[in-house]
Amino acid sequence: MSATAQTITPNLGKPSLELINDVQQFLYREARLQDAQAYRDWLDMLTEDIHYWMPAREQRYRANPMEPDITHAAYYNDNYANLETRVSRTETGTCWSEDPATRSAHVVTNIEVELSDNPDEYRVYSLVAVYRNMNEDEEHTLYGHREDILRCVDGELKLAKRKITIDQNIFLSKSLNVYL
């Protein structure tokens, strides 16, 4: 599988305010690029070994839960090439459903930063709310609970792994044309 970004061991040390600030700025910039649909610039914010994963939900009884698994159904279970494939669709000039363009607002909040045993990798939790408005009057709001690994590469933060957990059991819309 493409999940090459390994899980990391948490380190109980306290992240510096400077690091927290850098992480926040990274996530806000990412949100702005998404809203601007500057997808190539967004791809530049990812490591080449990114695993970008949004598993399908299944409503189960507490007595027999089903843990998300990368071999199960997923909205996204992507490596870098897969994400680039998705982006390339919007650049073909024949992507009819994106013309007129979708309007979106990514709001990022609840950011937590954890150090790990690797001084260059941090676990970052955040909550993203995406408001989407498209066509004449269609509205859709999505919430994604994100668990990221950010990696410092040559002094620059990059997204190395993201798991997005959505709250909707049935996805309440015809398309998922925004990244969370």
């Binding site: 997923a74 909205y75 897969n82 998705r86 009819w96 459903s97 015809k174 398309s175 998922l176």
Partner: peptide, 27 residues
């Protein structure tokens, strides 16, 4: 099997490169 799995999700799911255009038409 996992390549098929990844391929179907990449093409024919709500975020799929083909499916996203279908729902718009049918609505």
């Amino acid at each position: 099997k996992q390549m098929v799995n990844k391929g179907t999700m990449l093409t024919f799911s709500p975020g799929g490169t083909l499916e996203m255009d279908d729902g718009e038409n049918w609505e």
